[in-house]
């Protein structure tokens, strides 16, 4: 039971959930108080991502790729004629290579994280925006701890729907990590404050990442000339915010494996405090 619910339930019939009676104050002790000093040792030391569910919302993930290993679940999202979401077991793997690349980055940083693939791309361009929305909504319903979105949409009509889903994720403690666009265009959901948005730096260390004092891009992670998993068990060298994003997803998974139940707000604060230009340079 969360602190918020506890505070409310004691006075169910008397007060709405958005007020706090004086006598209810002890009931909202924080589950995850941060220590006086948050550093990389506290946040990441010894962490492997074990027990943390990370979803790769992308083009699928190749089965048994040596750089990815076991995938805990794979689902393909499509829409029926009436626009209803169909979530079926994904038997095709990756249709492009990109989702496998993202999964490989996550595995390389958080080796024990549980990786789930939710395929929203690859069935052609028509309807891809709607499938993306349906896939994200479905993924948020699955209670993954982290959802990696190395993609975005420029469709303004989708922005409010995406924002609603992002807010739902935020309040149910699912962290959305989204690629900032590499080009000067308006796209979503990375611009939302409820998600963590990621751009690229040019350095080689996968654990080096920087907080950006000038958002909407909030963090920069390794995204240039990254060796990533690709189709056919191969690895390739690739560049793009697409590959910086799973680095931050994986680092968030490391933190969550040591400090379960951090809220996205707390997690973003921890990432800020241990970023290479704030508290820690490794």
């Amino acid at each position: 039971m969360t602190a918020e619910v506890r505070a409310h339930s004691e006075h169910d019939d008397e007060r709405p959930a958005w007020s706090l009676a004086r006598e209810a104050v002890p009931g909202i002790a924080l589950e995850n108080p941060l220590p006086d000093r948050v550093d990389r040792e506290w946040a990441l030391g010894g962490a492997t991502g074990k027990g943390v569910k990370v979803c790769v919302l992308d083009s699928g993930v190749e089965v048994d790729h040596p750089a990815v290993g076991a995938v805990a679940g794979a689902t393909a999202i499509s829409l029926d004629e009436d626009g209803n979401t169909i979530a079926a077991p994904d038997t095709e793997g990756d249709l492009c290579g990109h989702g496998t690349a993202c999964a490989g980055v996550i595995r390389s940083i958080a080796p024990d994280a549980e990786i789930y693939s939710v395929r929203v791309l690859g069935a052609g361009f028509t309807g891809s925006g709607k499938v993306l929305l349906a896939g994200l909504r479905w993924a948020v319903e699955q209670d993954y701890d982290v959802i990696n979105m190395s993609l975005s949409t420029t469709k303004k009509a989708f922005s409010e729907l995406l924002r609603d889903i992002a807010d739902i994720a935020y309040f149910k403690r699912t962290l959305l990590v989204a690629s900032a666009h590499n080009m000067p265009v308006e796209s979503f959901p990375w611009r939302f404050s409820s998600v963590i948005s990621v751009g690229s730096h040019e350095e080689d260390d996968p654990l080096t990442f920087y907080a950006n004092p000038d958002p909407p891009v909030e963090f920069f992670a390794r995204g240039v000339n990254v060796e990533v998993a690709w189709l056919g068990g191969e690895t390739i060298t690739a560049t793009g915010n697409s590959f910086a994003t799973p680095a931050i997803s994986a680092i968030a998974a490391l933190v969550l494996s040591k400090h379960a139940r951090l809220t996205p707000f707390q997690l973003k604060s921890v990432l800020y405090l241990i970023s290479s230009n704030v508290g820690g340079r490794q």
């Binding site: 690859g122 190395s150 975005s152 666009h181 080009m183 390739i236 793009g240 915010n241 697409s242």
Partner: peptide, 12 residues
């Protein structure tokens, strides 16, 4: 993928 994701990609 680039079309659907609206995201640039560089591969070597």
């Amino acid at each position: 993928w680039v079309l659907s994701s609206r995201t640039p990609l560089v591969i070597d």
